[in-house]
Simulated scan of single mutants.
Amino acid sequence: MSYSEADIAATIDHAILKPELTRADVDAELDIAAEWKVFSVCVRPSDIPHAVERLAGTGVAVGTVIGFPHGTTSTATKVAEVHQALADGAVELDMVLNIGWLRSGFGAEVEADIRAVVEAAGDHIVKVIFETAYLTDDEIVRACRLSEAAGADFVKTSTGFAGGGATLPHVTLMRASVGPEVQVKASGGVRSLDTAVAFLDAGCTRLGTSASATILGEARAIAAGAAATGAVDDSSY
């Protein structure tokens, strides 16, 4: 399948989550998101109000994380985080499920934790982060089914902070383990155009990455080269 630069940009949640980032670092990343016209940024909760203000009028949405990065905060705390994030202007929420509960076989507790966040979010998009590097295939399937049962909009591979990110086998498994109304997000290690396209071809509809400029810059360069040679339509690749 071929994708234009705009097609790919429309799938990107530009990640601005590293704990050491200064306000100047955050601003530089927000400006990259605006310049490349990505779908959204995913910022640290404390950065939401600033990101909303700086991105006003750009068309870039502001999302944030809940229970990040380990998923071990209480359900009540996650719900409180949701309320604060929405009050501050976030429009999408990427929550980490309780990984230890999932691996312990506490399916009812995991489902209830996700459902509480979904209900607190109302009409806002909720993506459930699994941290697939820690899970077996059976656990990934179970996480998919619990997330879908709880009403989540997306299942997502990784935080990017666990030493392992998205893989094609995991994305393929996740896509096969949820119904068509649940979308899949690949995050962690999405740093090149080839990787981004591979995940989109595998069924992802959203990509979490801090390498937006690299990915979209590659896409633009390929399209420009094709246009210069007249080899193909320059709108997609």
Rank of each mutant, 00 (worst) to 15 (best):
P169S: 15
R206N: 08
E111R: 08
E139N: 09
E218A: 08
N98E: 05
A112R: 03
G163C: 12
V91K: 13
R191V: 11
F106V: 01
G165K: 14
V126F: 08
I215D: 08
T77L: 12
I215T: 03
I12Q: 06
V60M: 10
D47A: 14
I66L: 08
A9E: 12
V171M: 11
G179T: 07
F161C: 08
I215R: 12
L30P: 08
A221Q: 10
L21R: 11
S212A: 15
D27F: 09
D13M: 12
V128F: 00
E119H: 04
H70P: 02
G122M: 09
D137H: 12
E139Q: 15
D201W: 09
R175P: 03
E35T: 13
I99D: 01
T214P: 00
A213Y: 02
E109Q: 14
N98Y: 06
T157C: 09
T167N: 06
H14W: 13
A10E: 10
P49Q: 09
A224Q: 14
A226K: 09
V26W: 01
L168T: 03
C144W: 06
P69V: 15
L193K: 01
T172N: 11
S40R: 05
D7N: 11
V62E: 03
T159H: 02
E218F: 09
A6L: 08
D234F: 04
N98A: 14
A143I: 04
S2M: 11
E92N: 10
I8D: 02
A15Q: 02
S192A: 13
V184Q: 01
H14T: 12
I114M: 07
E109R: 12
D153N: 14
G163I: 13
T167L: 12
S104Q: 14
A121K: 04
E92G: 11
F154D: 01
V91G: 08
D31Q: 15
F154H: 02
S4R: 10
V96T: 03
P180E: 15
G160L: 13
G59T: 06
L93F: 05
D194N: 05
V126A: 09
I48K: 03
S192C: 07
A112I: 01
L93M: 13
P180Q: 14
G67L: 12
T195R: 13
D13C: 05
F39I: 03
